[in-house]
Design a protein around this nucleic acid. Structure first.
Length: 417
RNA sequence: GCGGUUGUGGUGAAGCGGUUAACACUCCGGAUUGUGGCUCCGGCACGCAUGGGUUCGAUCCCCAUCAAUCGCCCCA
């Protein structure tokens, strides 16, 4: 118990931290390239924000949130996603002032009480991007491009981009209604899950794996038939932009987002080899959210990507770059008499910005030399009684095995080559 | 939240109801004099996820718990 991290959490160990740093650098690179600026919002918010933003009936809000009452009797929730927080920050700090389109990105942990699996943790990390204040589908396309090119730039192949439109408050209810009617007629053929979905979110039935092959599925009403002009034009324009950019996509009428705030564009980038948790990035337009949270009616688009899933994919393809943790010099102290002299040398090296280490275990020189070799250092700096007495250092090049004793003051020169 | 599989040292892993839990790697120490990488020698689980139970006896059987993992669900 004491020595076990809570279920669904993971330590990022030194051996993995390098990969994370590298990934985060790549994130900052693309965002700079597309001119998105970083925003950091609190890890927790008022519970109400998520209930409003994500939607009361959603799984996330209904059964996956880490909610607690703080000592001031406030209901607080660990962010299950970051879009609602970004919108809140956008409104609270009036980022819309003197700006048309506000383009933001974030990286951080999110919390969802789910059953853990590979690629699904209770505390997980997302990189996300939000563009607030513009209804032009070109922004949808820009966001999708950013996500797509980012993943591609990591070296990932086998990526699939799926897009769909989920309509807007004007047309979605009509479609929903049609679907509900249609599936109610076929209710006895639906699986248990879908019968529940019938009430809650009939659009999800389209995505059911159990019922996928049943006959009535093919004849289910299609959203195209219900789209309002605005949504139809928006979707067509998006497709045009994507085609112009040369991105291959697949229209998947069954792609439905689980959060209530999505409107019009919905998209997902999948990496199939990941198995059940194959969605590596997903997002879409959420034109209604900002108003829902109390702002003016403002259009917006965004997406989020799961970092541990990306890392998993990168590992599968052997794309995680090896980390170089080598140091330049390793100080070897021969006997207790030389220890302080060695420590001084170590300190001076570091003051000269030369990465250095030494073994503090007071072990035999042999052991220290082994440690030196293992450290990957190019030089072993050996100091014993002789060197202390003559104020010198024996420098051994561990690659060539060449060794010479030089005056103490010449050491930086020697190492810096 | 539902169903399945799995759980042996730092790692990969063998093993079996019955006296010393293989093997490999890693790690640690050593092979005379202040020196690495090769080779050789030696050491490293009083314990087989945890807690119960069955049994003369359990790492091997049963139950529970915890965890990982696969699928569902959900999503990134």
């Amino acid at each position: 118990m004491l020595t076990n991290a809570p279920r669904g959490t993971k330590d990022i160990l030194p051996s993995q931290a390098g990969a994370w740093q590298w990934l985060e650098e790549k994130i900052r690179e693309v965002c700079a390239l597309y001119s998105y600026e970083e925003i950091r919002t609190p890890t927790f918010e008022h519970t109400e924000l998520f209930k409003r933003g994500i939607g009361e009936g959603t799984d996330v809000v209904e059964k996956e949130m880490y909610t607690f009452t703080d000592r001031g009797e406030r209901s607080i929730t660990l962010r299950p996603e970051n879009t609602a927080s970004v919108v809140r920050a956008y409104l609270q700090n009036k980022l819309f002032a003197n700006a048309g389109l506000v383009k933001l990105f974030y990286v951080g942990s999110m919390f969802r009480y789910d059953r853990p699996q590979a690629g699904r943790l209770r505390e997980f990390h997302q990189f996300g991007v939000e563009a607030l204040g513009e209804k032009n589908p070109a922004v949808d396309a820009e966001i999708i491009l950013l996500a797509w090119e980012f993943l591609r730039s990591l070296g990932l192949t086998e990526l699939k981009l799926k897009i769909n439109t989920v309509g807007c408050p004007a047309c979605r209810p009509i479609y929903r209604q049609k679907l509900t009617e249609y599936f109610t007629e076929n209710a006895d053929e639906l699986c248990g899950d879908c019968r529940r979905r019938l009430e809650k979110n009939p659009m999800r039935i389209l995505d059911c794996k159990v019922d996928a092959l049943k006959d009535f599925m093919d004849d289910a009403p299609k959203i195209e038939t219900c789209l309002c002009d605005d949504c139809r034009e928006h979707f067509n324009a998006l497709k045009k932009f994507l085609t112009a950019a040369g991105v291959e996509y697949e229209i998947n009428p069954r792609l439905v987002r689980g959060l209530d705030y999505y409107t019009k564009t919905a998209f997902e980038i999948q990496y199939a080899p990941l198995g059940a948790q194959s969605a590596v990035a997903g997002g879409g337009r959420y034109d209604g959210l900002i108003k829902e949270i109390g702002g003016d009616d403002t259009p917006a688009v965004g997406f989020a990507a799961g970092l541990e899933r990306i890392l998993l994919a990168l590992e599968l393809q052997g794309l995680v770059p090896a980390q170089d943790k080598k140091i330049s010099a390793f100080v070897v102290a021969g006997g207790a008499a030389a220890e302080a002299y060695a420590f001084k040398l170590l300190t001076d090296l570091r003051r000269e910005k030369i990465s250095a280490a030494m073994d503090f275990g007071r072990k035999s020189m042999k052991s220290q030399m082994k440690a030196a070799a293992k450290s990957g250092a190019k030089f072993a700096l050996i100091v014993g009684e002789d060197e202390v007495a003559s104020s010198s250092v024996t420098v051994k090049n561990l690659e060539t095995s060449a060794q010479e004793k030089i005056p103490r003051e010449k050491i930086f020169e020697k190492i810096n080559g």
